[in-house]
């Protein structure tokens, strides 16, 4: 799971320098590779701003996977059947795996996992805001799969064609797993929608809470999205926030109807002229509030991450100390 938050970091919202069409030869070679849909690899020359943009985006993506383990992990111990428990454990394990290979992809750009983690723990690095909302019922686990992962897939499929090779390749694998996650989320919703009156109410109450934050996941409207032009030229970002959001709504409304759920938007209406759904205004004030640390769970999520890291320090120290001892012993034996 991941959401598009690359344009939401206030510290990095300044426009980056444009690549000059008449730049140095290596710049021209770089842009020519990108224009020809080739891949930029870690050893290739790349503009510093390209490296920084990617590093920020991939590390934010990795952080989102790691923080994203909390809201769903919250329900593993209470999963209502052993089958659901097993599926949820596997799903959260996938998220950890995504985090691992995204950190690895980001490391190819010259920053260590420890440095990235330190940025997360200090609050300098962002992660997807959607995980700052709480999971209050079992239906929320379904909702994260169905809507949050559904939105993530919309965002991530174009990233499989991203110009940076290690990221594009990581995304191909991530997308395969996310599509399974989305299906399991929908399957949970389907069970609830066929269930008792209490289960149906649980599903609707959950949708009422998640719908608008999920739409905001695609990021600010295109008009306010500073990075998009440059990222499009570099083929990092290939489809705009608004286009992705519309695509998501168009795909999701019929699914909600199938589930017998009401989308909490009075203005939602099919527009025969555009061939898309019209929808009501998104509360961007709420979005920015949550992005900037004032969501329901921002402090809890980060505190849980920092606690795990700090309490794990002695374990990591032990592993390192043991590795050093072992190497010394092997060295001695060989001598």
């Amino acid at each position: 799971m991941y959401t598009q938050s690359m344009d939401t970091d206030p510290e990095t919202r300044n426009p980056v320098a444009k690549v000059s069409a008449v730049g140095r030869p290596e710049e021209q070679r770089f842009q020519a590779t990108v224009d020809a849909e080739g891949k930029i690899e870690p050893r290739d020359w790349m503009p510093e701003a390209y490296r920084k943009t990617l590093l920020r985006q991939i590390s934010q993506h990795a952080h989102s996977e790691i923080i994203g383990m909390f809201p769903e992990g919250n329900w593993i111990s209470r999963a209502p059947s052993l089958k659901r428990k097993a599926i949820l454990i596997a799903k959260v394990q996938d998220e950890a795996g995504h985090g691992l290979y995204l950190y690895s992809a980001a490391e190819t750009l010259g920053q260590s996992r420890d440095e990235m983690m330190a940025a997360l723990h200090s609050g300098r690095a962002k992660y997807s805001s959607i995980f700052n909302y709480p999971t209050l019922t079992w239906a929320d686990v379904g909702m994260i799969g169905w809507l949050v992962d559904g939105a993530a897939i919309m965002n991530q499929i174009p990233l499989c064609r991203c110009s940076y090779g290690p990221y594009a390749r990581a995304m191909i694998r991530v997308c395969k797993e996310e599509s399974f996650h989305q299906r399991q989320g929908f399957d949970i919703m389907l069970s609830l929608s066929k269930g008792t009156a209490d289960q149906k109410a649980m599903a609707q109450e959950s949708l009422d809470r998640w719908w608008w934050p999920v739409l905001a996941m695609f990021g600010p409207p295109d008009a306010d999205s500073v990075h998009s032009g440059q990222s499009a030229q570099w083929k990092i970002k290939r489809v705009s926030n608004d286009e992705l959001r519309q695509k998501f709504i168009d795909a999701t409304v019929p699914q909600a109807e199938l589930l017998g759920l009401r989308i909490p938007d009075e203005k939602l209406k099919w527009n025969t002229q555009t061939g898309h759904y019209d929808f009501g205004p998104i509360d961007w004030d709420d979005f920015w509030r949550v992005v900037n640390g004032e969501g329901p769970c921002n402090k809890e999520r980060l505190a849980a991450r920092v606690k795990a890291y700090e309490e794990g320090q002695w374990v990591r120290d032990a592993a390192m100390a043991y590795a050093v001892k072992r190497k010394a012993r092997q060295h001695k034996e060989a001598a």
């Binding site: 790691i66 593993i76 111990s77 596997a90 950890a96 795990a308 794990g312």
Partner: peptide, 29 residues
């Protein structure tokens, strides 16, 4: 073991705990 998910000392151990927990739940079933 599943209680460790997200809280393990290092990411690789989150994955290992999940993996082993998953095996055990599978055996239990």
């Amino acid at each position: 073991l599943a209680e460790w998910l997200g809280h393990a000392p290092v990411l690789e151990e989150d994955i290992a705990s999940a993996n082993i927990s998953l095996d055990l739940i599978g055996q239990a079933r």
